[in-house]
Design a binder for these strands. Sequence first.
DNA 1: CTCTAGAGGTCGCTATGCCG
DNA 2: CGGCATAGCGACCTCTAGAG
Length: 370
Amino acid sequence: MAHDTLKNANKAKKDEFYTQLTDIEKELRHYKDQFKDKVVYCNADDPFESNFFKYFASNFNLLGIKKLIATSYSGSPILGTQISLFDIQGVKAEKEKEPIKIVINEVKDYNKDGAIDISDVEYLLKHDKNTAKKLKGSGDFRSNECVEILKEADIVVSNPPFSLFREYISQLEEHNKKFLIIGNTNAITYKETFALIKDNKLRTGYTNFNVGMFFVVPDDWEKYHHIDENGNKIARVSTSCWFTNLQVKKHTEDLILYKTYIGNEDQYPKYENFNGIEVSRVADIPIDYKGFMGVPITFIDKHNPEQFEIIGLGISNSGIDIGVQPYKPEHKKYRKEIQKRGAVDGDLYIMENGIVKVPYARIIIKNKRI
DNA sequence: CTCTAGAGGTCGCTATGCCG
DNA sequence: CGGCATAGCGACCTCTAGAG
């Protein structure tokens, strides 16, 4: 038990990634109409540091949201000079880091400076002690009190710890909530996540998927990309993207295809152990191939369910049986070598110039239009 | 108009540590 | 000790602004 706690603490340390306001703005501007009259809940983060809270508090009236709720988590670290800290009435907040719940029902010109903005939210937090309240527990998204708040919410927006992504998303599914969250692009290949994408219950957001995102990390972080104008360490996480079950326009638009299979058959090797062709770049998906095609996971970012049907994943442990065969007897001798590279029996493979090649995780798709 | 450097974007792949 | 998943990394391609 004590061992478990230690392990978890160690794991949690790697989850100290704080989303930058510009990244939140870049993504959220596409969903404006979907937030009207909604109860928005930002959890698994910390209102003292959170740019999510800051974003929704600043744009409360612009988005026309009904209510904003944010809870903090006691495990969250203090990031030095980071972001705007509010002096909150009735809560020993900043230094003690007590887990709290903030509820904003409306934003008016409380400080009578002639404008309605974030300073009015600060004023509210300073002068109205009903705005922020201590939580009983740690503020963990799995705790009873946080689940009760979740029930009241319409849309959850957050950057949950990647290590808890599975648990986090299954909780949102279980409670049938709308959400817009940041996750690891590799999560596409998680069994549970993939099943949701396949059923069109989950899709990626607007922010470019391949570049990754830049997060504020603690001062003692060694692997950082640069230091910003406020002295914050910024790290690049190339495998991060937004996941949502809100509407995303690009996923209703066709991916433009221009290559043909007929005449270029040699560029599309057939898998040795599956009845389909290998398409190693999304841009090379042929316009005229009727059967199964294996494409890189980056395809998911451009997927329109009206255009393509997702059949499954080309890895053996995807949870969906698409009929991938074991190694052919004559290729068994390459097995050890392949396994060294992380592949196992049941993963797709091709032969290239007499050499066994196992592509990175592939999404198996089929064109619906032909 | 051509060339090129740098930024932007795409995607393959492997070292690492956990877990059973 | 092998299976397995991964809050990275880097090679390489593409685009574009600006110089000549």
